[in-house]
């Protein structure tokens, strides 16, 4: 193969390769630059940021921004809440998704087709903002922890991915053999299906966990108690609405209050994205797989 590649390349091909290298490098820079500038600014000093000296790498390396972030009570509350919602929420998601996907993967189940259609329909039509809000109100979920955990318990898309995976990867003969040995459906589900579905469980765990960490809408709609806010709400207030409170930046050694407020924002972005970036390298190969499983149907 390596030899085949080396077979004389025409001039046109070489020009194309050079063009592509240039284009791809530009794309790489466009992708990287915003990320780099955020990290660099977060490690720069307030005065360097405010006077616009940070172009590429940190200027006057400093941790002022991070100190300010961790002095901020709101951020700590948000971090704690988001971690809680992510862990507990994902466990609920996995449980609900798996107990839905497995029975629906069984073609011999009476009514399987109809139930599947009912689930799929919810993907393309729904009550919308106000009826959902009224439902949460009637159920007494408004302003409780549960509103962050229960309403999104099953993502139909993830359920379909899981179902497709089970259907195409676990042979029917295995079920027949297990049934002959007197294995019940629930036993079979727990002892055979779950252990064999590791790959798809990894994929949907990733999707759910990141979904929880990044969730903004339900907190925005249904919560108004600061103690329950996830990180994203505080991020929105600080980053987008620019509500930087005095207690975040008051520090006797700080000369430039305005500058520290700016650095704080960059540090906050880094702090907010770190959990996702920690998971990222471990799951990169999995999500490619996830896209492919999802692509089998639709």
């Amino acid at each position: 193969m390596a030899k085949a590649k080396k077979v004389k390349r025409s001039g046109a091909d070489q020009r194309l390769e050079i063009c592509l290298i240039i284009i791809m490098s530009i794309i790489g820079v466009i992708m990287l630059y915003p990320l780099l500038i955020v990290v660099s600014t977060s490690f720069s000093s307030a005065s360097a940021v405010i006077s616009g000296k940070v172009w590429l790498f940190p200027v006057d390396f400093s941790l002022e921004g991070y100190k300010a972030v961790f002095r901020t009570n709101d951020v700590l509350i948000g971090y704690r809440n988001s971690l809680f919602y992510m862990v507990v929420g994902t466990v609920i998601n996995l449980f609900m998704t798996l107990i839905t996907a497995y029975p629906l993967s069984r073609d011999d189940l009476v009514g399987q087709g109809i139930i599947m259609k009912l689930f799929t329909f919810t993907m393309i039509f729904g009550g919308g903002m106000i009826p959902n809000y009224l439902l949460m109100k009637d159920l007494g979920l408004l302003n409780t922890v549960w509103v962050m955990l229960i309403p999104g318990a099953i993502s139909v898309y993830n359920m379909i991915i899981t179902r497709t995976f089970i259907k195409s990867n676990i042979p029917k003969e295995m079920l027949e053999a297990a049934q002959i040995d007197g294995c019940s459906d629930i036993q079979y589900f727990i002892k055979m299906v779950l252990p064999l579905s590791g790959a798809v469980i990894a994929v949907i765990t990733l999707y759910y966990a990141i979904g929880h960490w990044n969730a903004y809408f339900s907190a925005f709609m249904y919560l108004n108690d600061k103690e329950l806010y996830p990180l994203q709400i505080f991020l929105k207030n600080i980053l987008v609405s620019n509500q930087v409170e005095a207690d975040m930046i008051v520090d006797e050694q700080v000369q430039s209050v305005e500058g520290i407020a700016e650095v704080l924002k960059y540090s906050l972005i880094v702090v907010a994205v770190v959990p996702v970036m920690i998971i990222y390298p471990f799951v990169q190969k999995h999500f490619v797989k996830g896209v492919m499983i999802g692509a089998v149907k639709g």
Binding site: T100, Y102, L134, L139, I154, D185, I186
Partner: peptide, 26 residues
């Protein structure tokens, strides 16, 4: 299929409450 329906019971309740009830709210 009784055990499979048992597994599906909770998801079905969930689906009706959180997806179909709001449609009546329309």
């Amino acid at each position: 299929g009784r055990q499979l329906y048992l597994l599906l019971a909770l998801p079905l309740i969930y689906m009706v409450v959180f997806s179909y009830v709001p449609m009546f709210g329309l």
